[in-house]
Design a protein around this nucleic acid. Structure first.
Lengths: 159, 159
DNA sequence: AAAAAAAATGCATAAATATGCAAAAAATAG
DNA sequence: CTATTTTTTGCATATTTATGCATTTTTTTT
């Protein structure tokens, strides 16, 4: 699934820095080893609800749409469920295993949900350590994850 | 002051209907008797913080930037103060006189602020009737207007 | 009120983005 | 595993948007 990784990286890149053209974004993707063309990028941005907005300083930058930021109404939902392989628990923390190379992006996505329950995450290549906030139980984290990634637990059981 | 009227109309048009290209917006402006070119429109949209975002149904539409909607950080503020000529009071209501042709747009702008104090407005060509909500005093409406349109009262006094 | 400065505009065109179509890749069914 | 359907992609190009520059309009200053 080449596409999901690219979509995540796109979200990440436009979140981390101001990017003003698709060509600029394209270059950054390629630096990360993700090949892509402008055409595909244009389509992906549309799907993600990302648009080019005036940056207030005379230029433009890419940004998540107001719509996507303000509501959950946007019909497209990034589905990361398929890249998650296994979830286990140890020492009050949660260990999430993903397909190779997907841990960092997935962790970024989880962080992006801004949930109180989650104190932070650390990601390697295919493993994420999720640290719950003090006083939060593992079942609480499970339901939190389920709300971030609907269908997650059902998917895990299948494997 | 040709420009302000156009800016207001642009805001109004993209608020009222989904518009997907500048050419489409241009046509609607012209239908309203407001001449404009695509070049100017592009610049105006940038100034207003309006951008073209995916509409979630496979197309695009123009929309106020998230930034503008969420915060007051956007450096450009539409300055309607110059079109307002006079403010008087009658029967617990407020009568606002504007330059010819500017009442409707100005009222739209005031409505858009979504203030509790204001029950509603009715606009003719150069006059707005502002109806305060029950229990709201004229001085309260004055300070409400001042916050929507900073500098308003100072301007009025000068004339 | 005239001169000077600043802002707005149109034209032409550059820059940037979107998309039809055919090919390739991936997912699904049998 | 192979055939079928669906999804994704690139290429080429159409569409759409942004902007440099010269000109006009508006505002400010004197």
């Amino acid at each position: 699934m080449q596409k999901i990784g690219r979509l995540l990286e796109i979200e990440k890149l436009i979140t981390e820095a101001d990017i003003s053209t698709q060509d600029e974004l394209l270059r950054k993707l390629r630096e990360k080893g993700i090949p892509c063309t402008q055409a595909t990028l244009s389509r992906n941005l549309k799907q993600l609800g990302i648009s080019r907005i005036p940056d207030g300083s005379g230029g433009y930058k890419y940004s998540l749409s107001a719509m996507l930021r303000l509501t959950d109404a946007f019909p497209f939902k990034l589905n990361l469920v398929p890249v998650i392989r296994e979830i286990t628990e140890a020492r009050g923390m949660m260990i999430i295993r993903t397909l190779p190379g997907n841990a960092s992006n997935t962790a970024f996505f989880i962080d992006g949900a801004g949930r109180f329950e989650i104190a932070g995450t650390i990601a390697g290549d295919d493993t994420i350590l999720l640290i719950p906030r003090d006083g939060i139980t593992i079942p609480q984290v499970h339901s939190c994850l389920e709300s971030i990634l609907p269908g997650l637990h059902e998917q895990i059981k299948k494997k």
